[in-house]
Amino acid sequence: MSYLDTVADFYAEVAETPDVGLCCVQSTPLKMPGLTVPAQMQEMNYGCGTTVHPAELTGDPTVLYVGVGGGLEALQFAYFSRRSGAVIAVDPVDSMRAAAERNLAIAAQQNEWFDLSFVSIRSGDAFALPMPDRSVDVVAQNCLFNIFEPEDLAKALAEAYRVLKPNGRLVMSDPISTQEMPLHLRSDDRLRAMCLSGALTYEDYTQKIIEAGFGQVEIRARRPYRLLNAKHYKLDQNLMLESLDSVSFKVPIAKDGACIFTGKMAVYTGAEDSFDDNAGHILMPGIPLAVCDKTAGKLDKFSDITVTDSTWYYDGGGCC
């Protein structure tokens, strides 16, 4: 039996008997005026962060949600795109799709604005998305891709890239590891299914996104997720996992590499009226300008420019 079979069996179990607290971090779910989340749906919130960023959901986008879970984020996406078929939710587990359908039916009773036609739940998986090329504005997944082994992760990212329209966004929330995951944990299929042992490091995770063709990555949040106790998990020392929320854009990769925004700022401290690096960045004295990490590295070499540390929160603006 492959690790993917173990994952499917595990999520079939938690679809029938919700495991409150599985994967999720201690955070308040997105609350919007007129949005009521059914209790059962909230109990099945098997995510490690959020993929619902209102700034990414303007203009009535078509959203493909991979791994429907209890339907929570499918409902939240529908809040922003209130039309038939606006949200397509894909899941390979029959019982999970059935649970999401039940939860969404309850949501339709509790939310006057919500119609069941807004969300289309389909059978399918991340490696063969049931959508044509360049057909959706947003692809989202929450705490799913971290389960995949690296080769399968590459396939899933390539599929997301395929179905996205040009300039489309891949919105993800996944655990990452602060150090390389030991082999004995990576080989534990049950822990992998529980989102505890498949996490890559930040560097490897973002590199996989870039290798799939995404030219710009923006980090929305990075925070503690789980601490793997050294004694319990047979480690030399405790291992901290973090939750990473990101938005990756289907835009061309620049000749000098992709742009990753982590909240760094560049500030010109010199005596001139402005600083122009002749690469598209004009800094005014004393005024912070958001820049990608690649540009930050170049500007940091100048003695009259101060580059701030990553805040791990960036939601647009600045330049690259």
Rank of each mutant, 00 (worst) to 15 (best):
D236C: 02
C143G: 12
E13L: 01
C143A: 15
V87D: 05
C319W: 03
T308V: 10
P288F: 02
L244K: 03
Q40P: 05
E203K: 08
Y268P: 06
Q216C: 04
I88P: 03
Q216W: 04
V66L: 12
G263P: 10
L153Y: 01
Q109N: 10
D300G: 13
S274M: 12
F302R: 05
C48S: 06
C320H: 03
F214A: 10
P92S: 00
Q207I: 03
V119H: 11
G317C: 04
D276V: 09
T51E: 08
D188Y: 06
K250L: 05
T36A: 14
T262D: 12
Y268I: 14
Q110M: 15
A86N: 01
A271E: 15
A221H: 06
T295S: 15
R97I: 02
D300K: 15
L57Q: 13
P92V: 06
A99F: 02
V307G: 10
M44Y: 04
L227E: 00
G67I: 10
P29H: 10
L64F: 02
T306D: 12
W113V: 06
D94V: 00
T50R: 02
E151M: 06
H53M: 13
V163E: 11
E180L: 04
T17I: 01
C143D: 10
A100Y: 13
C319Q: 07
N278G: 15
D9Y: 08
M181P: 00
D133C: 01
D236K: 00
D9P: 01
P288V: 07
E73N: 12
Q237W: 05
M194N: 06
G213N: 10
D236N: 06
A107F: 07
R82K: 08
E16I: 00
N111P: 11
V20K: 05
E272V: 10
T62P: 00
L57C: 06
T36Q: 07
R190L: 13
P252H: 02
A279N: 04
K234I: 03
L164I: 13
E56Q: 11
V291E: 09
P92I: 04
L22A: 08
L75P: 11
I287V: 15
W113N: 06
P288C: 02
